[in-house]
Design a protein around this nucleic acid. Structure first.
Lengths: 344, 344
DNA sequence: GTGAAAGCGCTAACAG
DNA sequence: CTGTTAGCGCTTTCAC
């Protein structure tokens, strides 16, 4: 760390380097940027390199961006970075892809606060970002914040009603299908679904996927096997009675937390997983799914890819479908909760 | 979103506004920044405001920073944003505090990759950040990456051997004491500690806190009550036998995941929480602690504050102690796992 | 009260 | 091969 008291010793600029190397600034510029066209004498080049070393020169990105007329920034506004790892995974994917293309992410965390959101977007606009990703921690419809329209933008894990802004979202239907298929593959025919209580892309999509998978297997849909519960451990726990009453042999839970609560309830009733009841979750929330007893089979929400593809769409590398959507598959993750450990 | 095909229509600048308002750029600059000294006629001021509206002018932060000779950026490099919510909370705290002081966070996620780290730091330096926060997702000693020394920097949730760089870290000893005290307060005298297997600030600090709390209560330290286990659910589960053999009535677990595994093991042995054994965790990892049966008493790792104070130290608003450390307390979070639900 | 002009650090023609 | 020059969009003296 530099001494905090030291008088700011005006940063070393290209001119300083030029002077030290006995060349002009443009020569320095050329060697710094490895300009193809420019033929610089090996001699001058070396002197410049040396001067850069000696003076500890760092190019000034702001000056460079100014003259280039546009920054290498990409904005990412997230509504909840602190509560789950989901936003973190989106950020991770977005950043990897952004860096790959020479962009830097400006991340703003709004925790759902509208003022923070407006401020964040204004800040990004003033930094002349190349575009803005607007992301939510769970898949939902959003009202486009004013200001977003001033830049290229892409919605990540959310979408707007009119569909005029490209949206990268998980394929909930596919996920529901995959989850149900894991149970089907083990021979289950009476499969319960513990869905969430509120209508949402997740609620509707996963239900549809469940029905599709049943249909594929030639099994009639039985509405009695579908029940709603608060999407957390408590909701799962409380569903046990209804599930047992329906004599299901397998259950597809709305998420891993519900499955965790369900495990507790089943244990209390003396039902074993997976021998008596096979369980599948959703989300692949590592801290839970991989460490339950037995480890939970689930379907992964592709947050990393949502972020990654969001950037690709923003940069024009991927094209959304005609409806403005890019849909990312939810891959199944098989663990011991659907069949006896020895068989997987 | 702007039409992706539209030819980039050179952004509107201050000159455009000046022309539209029939004034000079300096006048526009003065009204945009509400310069105190400058006396601008209400008339001119209004015309400028109007022109700004009409043209949709946004100041160019890069140009502003260039002339001001320094950016309003703060860098934050994190080693693992995607795996736990911990880094997210650090980022959240850092960003709130940064924004409060007019700074924007440049976040870089390195996932432990050294090249990514070097690149991230170089990028931040080139953007002339005011300073850099270097953070880790669990409390540990780090080797200072080269390059960090070129800027003011502060370590967050980590520290360097020589202590020349200020470090903001959680008070592990305090946390261990608080956790143990929760058990003591319920009358427990035979308290087990399931610690992690590897030496670390967490391992050593929490053990010390445990011993201090016992000493405060006049209880002799019994090494047989301290056992090590892998710091996850599996580790907790496997500790049950040893714990029961020691006839402890309360257990302080290295973290919430260990406590979660312990719950499973205790249930299998027919032991109830908290009636037969009271349990306390560490971390306050919401998704687990708040939703176990019964909800888990624990001690919170103050990640939000680590980030927040990290920024304050960087900006010179808080002073580290003589040893370069700023230590943040780990507050206890009481839930039902230490006493019967009715009594809390 | 308001404007003209210099310059922040850098790039990109264009000259030589 | 290398140097000169004109800006990029903005702030800030200093004149008028």
């Amino acid at each position: 760390m530099k001494d905090r008291n030291e008088a700011a010793p005006r940063a070393v600029t290209m001119r300083d380097v030029a002077k030290a190397a006995g060349v002009s600034v443009s020569t320095v510029s050329h060697v710094v940027n490895d300009k193809k066209g420019a033929r610089i004498g090996k001699d001058a080049r070396d002197r410049v390199r040396q001067a850069i070393q000696d003076l500890g020169y760092r190019p000034n990105a702001m000056a460079k961006n100014l003259v280039k007329g546009g920054s290498r920034f990409l904005g990412l506004v997230a509504d909840a970075i602190a509560s789950t790892p989901f936003a973190g995974q989106i950020i991770h994917g977005a950043q990897d892809e952004a860096w790959r293309h020479g962009y830097v992410l400006l991340v703003a965390n709004t925790e759902g606060n509208n003022d923070a959101e407006a401020e964040a977007i204004a800040m990004m606009l003033e930094h002349k970002v190349r575009g803005i990703l607007y992301s939510t921690w769970y898949h939902r419809e959003v009202a486009m914040p004013a200001g977003l329209a001033e830049a290229d933008s892409v919605l990540v894990n959310c979408f707007s009603a009119h569909g005029r802004v490209p949206a990268v979202v998980p394929d909930e239907v596919d996920g529901g299908r995959e989850a149900t298929r894991m149970l089907l593959a083990e021979g289950h025919r009476r499969i319960g679904l513990v869905n969430t209580t509120t209508a949402s892309p997740a609620h509707d999509g996963r239900l549809l996927g469940y029905r599709q998978a049943l249909a594929e297997a030639g099994i009639a849909f039985d509405p009695d096997l579908v029940m709603d519960a608060h999407p957390d451990q408590e909701g799962g726990y409380e569903s046990v009675g209804r599930l047992l009453a329906q004599r299901v042999t397998g259950v597809f839970c709305h998420n891993d937390r519900v499955a965790m609560g369900l495990y507790d309830g089943l244990r209390e009733k003396g039902a074993r997983v997976p021998e008596d009841i096979a369980v599948v979750g959703f989300d692949n929330q590592e801290v839970i799914a991989a460490h339950l007893r037995p480890p939970l089979s689930t379907v992964a929400l592709p947050h990393y890819d949502l972020g990654r593809v969001g950037v690709r769409v923003l940069l024009g590398l991927d094209e959304p479908a005609a409806d403005g959507r890019v849909t990312i598959a939810c891959p199944p993750v098989r663990r011991a909760s659907v069949s006896t450990p020895s068989s997987i």
